[in-house]
Design a protein around this nucleic acid. Structure first.
Length: 188
DNA sequence: ACAAGGATCCTCT
DNA sequence: GAGGATCCTTGTT
């Protein structure tokens, strides 16, 4: 258990078919899954779905260099810089040509407590997408990369309960999208 | 080439 | 609860 390689070698990546589904289903089922990168393993406890024809979605106004990965095949990372400071991690969903993704909003540390705490300046909590990016030491060069390694997502321990609430920080979206319960939180 | 604003976080008060 | 940090992306001139 002490050996991080144990986790990487015994963890099988979720298949592409996992992501090649309704973004709402993927967002809900990602709760409890594990993100692996180097010696760090995080358990996902909060996600948000960004759908096709969703005015809160970065890809709503069409293809741009930044959102290009969202238009590609499912099972890839979409990473971008927010407020000039924070690196936000998303997983691309839906078939190629359909732009959608799931934002990873919150995690808990499974392995690598020491390095995560160090990267976070002594803080422990990873509730908030910027904190997740910081815990994994992500930068925008990770955008467009697969989720099968070295950045890898595996099945973890599903939550007993899931709560759905409106998404955060999207005041610019139309009211129907702003109020849609497309944010998923693990309970228990 | 320019201006505006952002899927946030932290430090105050 | 308010405000600043900080810089990239985007749409427009």
């Amino acid at each position: 258990m002490e050996d991080v390689r144990f986790w990487v070698m015994t963890s099988s990546a979720l298949p592409i078919s996992f992501y090649d589904r309704s973004t709402l289903v993927v967002a809900r089922e990602l709760l409890g899954c594990h993100i692996h990168l180097d010696e760090v393993v995080l358990r996902i406890v909060e996600t948000e779905a960004y759908l096709p024809n969703d005015t809160a979605c970065h890809a709503f106004r069409g293809r741009t260099p930044r959102n290009e990965p969202m238009w590609g095949p499912p099972g890839y990372a979409y990473v971008y810089l927010c407020y000039g400071i924070h690196t936000l991690l998303n997983f691309v969903t839906e078939r190629e040509g359909v732009a959608a993704a799931v934002l990873i909003r919150g995690c808990e540390v499974v392995e690598g407590h020491e390095v995560v705490t160090s990267r976070r300046g002594g803080r422990r909590d990873l509730i908030g997408p910027g904190k997740v990016g910081q815990a994994l030491a992500l930068d925008t060069s990770w955008t467009g990369r697969p989720l099968q390694g070295p950045l890898l997502v595996s099945r973890g321990s599903p939550p007993t309960q899931v709560e759905a609430k409106p998404r955060v920080g999207i005041d610019y979206a139309e009211p129907a999208d702003r109020d849609a319960p497309w944010r998923f939180l693990a309970r228990g």
